[in-house]
Design a protein around this nucleic acid. Sequence first.
DNA 1: AATACGGGGGG
DNA 2: CCCCCAGTATT
Length: 347
Amino acid sequence: MENIENQDFKQIGSKLLDWYKKNARDLPFRQTKDPYKIWICEIVFQQTRISQGLNHYNNFVKRFPDVKTLAEAPEDEVLLYWKGLGYYSRAINIHKAAQQIMTDYYGVFPHDYEEILKLKGIGKYTAAAVSSICFDSKMPAVDGNFYRVLSRIFADDFDISNSRAFNYFSELAQLVLPENVGDFNQAMMDLGSEICKPKNPLCHECPLNQDCLAFQLNKVSEFPVKTKKVKAADLDLKYYFVHRNGQFLIQQRKDDFIWKKLFEFPPEISEELMPFIKSVKNVNHKLTHKNLSIEIFNVEVDSESVWEDFIIKNQYIITDFEGSHEKSFPKPLENYIQNYHTAYRIL
DNA sequence: AATACGGGGGG
DNA sequence: CCCCCAGTATT
């Protein structure tokens, strides 16, 4: 019995592969099996749409074309190429992993799933993706697309917010997995983003609609089942825009909270800074961004004051609007700097 | 097992 | 305004 059903399900995999041969998206990382490039693209496109990250990916691999170049680059520059992408620990980890490959693997990207999994920032999904695409491993790269496509095909109501979902859908994937797992994994990504979309899927164009139980039952919108909805906590921040003659003060964040190692304005006026200050004005610069509320105070510094020693001692960095391009700022602050520059023409 | 981590886009 | 997305690390 299982044999017969298995045969049926396997044809789903081969149908998908046929569809992929004709409909694969033309993406820069599709013409290579270089594990470095595949790795970078997998990290860039975690929780990130293609249209959103494509320029970042291209710029990144142009500047850092291989493991060695990346490993030898300064961390701040890696961060700079990640500017605006979000989830900045990805950049930190990608840099560490490159150094890990240099020291632990003599600069050669490891071939085995288990070894790849040991690299910083690489979890089960990415290890499966890289090993299957580059080294022909048979691991399904189970991600949000797998959850969505498989739950619909089998009209399976297993809750994808359950922490066992990864294992559950990995088993389910075995039913349809063809010989060429690397292409299958990529096919699932394309089908999931182009056809089997979260909202308004294009079922009439889907190569698998005859095999899709949810479609046959007219219940596609009911899958996947996801019960938990976590809401991000609200966050109120204050920043002091300390400036003089078109220059302003910034410092680097720690790596223990949001915006890891990104640059920001001083979040407070320290005691040592007081003597240099001419005025602090609440100019009503309020940035709201998602669940963020950021209040910015305009701080004017006495233009005669000599504060170089103070800056070094307190690990502040002084920069101008041009220099700020060399640093990676959180998006709301990046926008603020741009607007301030254009609105006030401070040079 | 639960939670934090960003930013862009769709409805 | 809420939901979703080529997930991972931490607790």
